[in-house]
Amino acid sequence: MAAGNRSEAAQGLTLVAPPFAYALLVLGAPLLTLLAYSFFKDGYLTIIYEFTLENYLAVWSDPIFHKIMLRSLGVAALVTVVTVALAFPVAYFLSFVVSSERKPLWLFLITIPFWTSYLIRVFLWKVILGYNGVVNSGLKSLGIIEQPLTFILYNVNSMVMTLAHAYAPFAILPIFIALEKIDRSLLEAGRDLGENRMMTFWRVTLPLAMPGVIAASLIVFIPTIGDYVTPALIGGGKIPMIANMIQAQMLDIDNRPLGSAIAVTAMIIVAALSLLFLFVNRRFLKVRQ
């Protein structure tokens, strides 16, 4: 403790070294390897260590890649919009209506499903939405429908539903935190200055909650794009997303350079879109609360 700035830094670095080294070894190095592979040639079951841009050219000119990438982006965007729109009122309710001693309980209730097996939850949606699933069989036994509803089956709709469910807490929490940070007297000031409830929400609450909404959007969007289980289970493998394509290239087809190139390309696209999204919304992020 009797330590100057230099040894303070040294102590901090020493302490952080083990987790950092672990992340570097198990995440950093593999990611760099992936990047390196994407510039090598595939020699059918072996890899030819020769620099090439072929993989990227192949990826960019592949209509299947375009289709799957666009579908992934579309699904992820749709899931993001649905999830955030559904989550906002809940976060608002939690922050403004629930009394402060009940808040931890509500938050706990909301986060619990998130921590239970993702696989089982996804599978259950399949069971719920399937041709002979819970919804259809339930409605049929109640005599409401004659034939099973098909619009909820093995398609983008059911995938969006499943993913919106899976990422719900991810969307609620950042918005809730942003709402919690809003000084309540600002809202009173808004009303005091003559705005009604709706306009106060529109002119004060929403802009101040935007950092949370933006964070929620990214937190939902990024992992959704990379989701593997939902397309495999719910989509019945017929509507693959980018993660399934990467996996297929890497393992089933065993073209690791091409698979790596797809992965790297997808990551770049997602990163670029995320940055663009942040840039578009930058005016909201400037507000420091």
Binding site: V26, L27, A29, P30, L31, T33, L34, Y37, I222, P223, I225, G226, D227, Y228, A243, I246, Q247, M250, R256, G259, S260, A263, M267
Partner: peptide, 12 residues
């Protein structure tokens, strides 16, 4: 995304 984590680790 976990698929990236697992694929890159698997490749290595």
């Amino acid at each position: 995304p976990e698929i990236i984590i697992s694929m890159s680790l698997l490749v290595v």
